[in-house]
Simulated assay, not measured.
Amino acid sequence: MQEAFLHYIWQFKKFDTTQLQTTRGESITLRHNGLPNLNGGPDFFNAQLQIDQQVWVGTVEIHLKSSDWYVHNHEVDAAYDNVILHVVYEHDTDIFRKDNSVIPTLELKLIIHKNVFKNYQRLLMTPHKWINCESDFADTDDFLMYNWLERLYIERLERKSNAIEAMLETTKNDWEAVLFMLLAKNFGLKVNGDAFLSMAKSFDFSMVRKLQSQPLQLEALFFGQVGVLEKDVQNGYYLSLVKEYQFIKQKFNLSNTNVIPLQFFRLRPPNFPTIRLSQLAMLYHQHPNFFTKVMAAETLEDLYALFQVGTSEFWDTHFTFEKISKGSRKLLTTNFIDLLLINTVLPLRFCFLKYQGKNPTEHNM
């Protein structure tokens, strides 16, 4: 048994509260169980209870066994001097204050509601399950399940819309710029998401508009801002990127001091940031006014078609700048596009419909 289970039992009174008695036969009347203490010290504070005719206000400490009081050295800790009740699953010894008076103890072993204890055993003490509540699925009403899932979906979109609204404020309602930042973050996945987002924020989106007709310059902008064009690499593509970035950096007075460094560790080669940045550059090269196209899409097939992009030619035979690899066209996979739709497109459409004064829950896709 876990002590956290006893905390739950005590906090929500999942035990028989009638005719409560201490282990010494004194009557207990609960007025307030107290509030959980998330810091050091006794488990609950500001508890109020009556033992026989005496009203007490103070803290409550909870253990599996009474003797755990001494195991944890509470007898020498002044923070436990004002404990008014020791709540345990099993009482095996009396506990004393410094003045040798006994701390009242409540044993829960025989008064926990049977159904609560039974559910605890079934959920947390049965091994070899996918998740603890898997056996309850068949008993869950379909209508309840679908409504719960829909509510979770809406709540997720609402949380993401808060972040989008903050981006809109910083970009003066430039929806194209917000879409770019969201896509950049999600192209970076969990490992490089923050790094890609910091790159997207390191320059004004107007630069993407100016450079997107020249894919090499767009790649140079992305690669240069994340700091991967500072190596001693001798191939024509890399040297062209360096030359383009030096020109762009000087022309637009760019800085990348606040851009988070990239990570390659524990990434599969198709998810290397070099590949994802090139794909992001090709996406914006192929689709000027991308936000308008995304909002105009009427079906999932329309959206999938928009994201049918790959890398520039160099990356067909590379995953890094230095080493040649087996040739392969590195297109965005369906699974990756699904992640972009879930984490970027759907939240943005949800927020845009709200911005237009429409009810997002009444619109499909």
Rank of each mutant, 00 (worst) to 15 (best):
A184Q: 05
K249F: 00
F137Q: 11
V208G: 06
V208C: 09
N359H: 14
L331Y: 15
T361Y: 06
T333R: 10
F222A: 06
E313R: 03
E230Y: 01
K358C: 09
L267H: 07
R24V: 10
L197N: 03
F252Y: 15
S27Q: 11
Y238I: 11
Q263M: 13
G34C: 11
F290W: 01
R266C: 13
I62T: 10
E90V: 12
R156W: 10
V294D: 12
A281V: 06
K114H: 06
L149T: 07
N132H: 09
Y146F: 15
S206A: 14
K326N: 13
K326V: 14
F247N: 01
A177G: 08
E219M: 02
H287L: 05
T333A: 08
R349A: 08
L64F: 12
L20A: 08
C133Q: 14
R97M: 09
Y146W: 13
G327T: 13
M167T: 00
S312A: 03
L197C: 04
P347D: 07
K249D: 06
T317L: 00
Y8D: 14
F5V: 02
Y146K: 13
N132Y: 13
V83I: 11
D316K: 10
N335V: 08
L189R: 04
L35Q: 11
V83L: 03
A177N: 13
I51C: 02
P269D: 09
A305M: 06
F117Y: 15
L221A: 12
W175E: 07
C133Y: 15
L346G: 00
F307Q: 04
M365H: 09
A220C: 09
T333Y: 08
R24Y: 06
R151W: 12
E169I: 11
G41I: 12
H128P: 00
I164H: 05
A305W: 03
H285V: 03
P270A: 12
D316C: 05
L123C: 09
A78K: 06
R209S: 14
F203G: 02
E165S: 06
E155R: 09
C351D: 03
E362C: 08
L277C: 10
S27A: 11
T317P: 00
F143I: 14
Q279Y: 10
H285E: 00
F15C: 09
G327Q: 09
Q21I: 10
D302N: 15
N359S: 15
L157C: 08
M125G: 01
K185P: 00
W56L: 12
H86V: 10
A177K: 08
L239S: 10
A184F: 05
A305R: 12
V259W: 09
I260E: 10
K243E: 14
K243L: 06
T317G: 01
L168C: 11
L306A: 01
F45K: 10
N162C: 12
L149E: 13
S161Y: 01
Q246C: 00
F319A: 01
Q54I: 15
A177E: 14
G40D: 15
E301K: 14
D141F: 04
P42T: 13
N335Y: 04
F96L: 14
F247T: 06
N364D: 09
N364V: 03
N33F: 11
K354G: 12
P127A: 12
F203R: 05
N364S: 09
W56F: 12
V228Y: 05
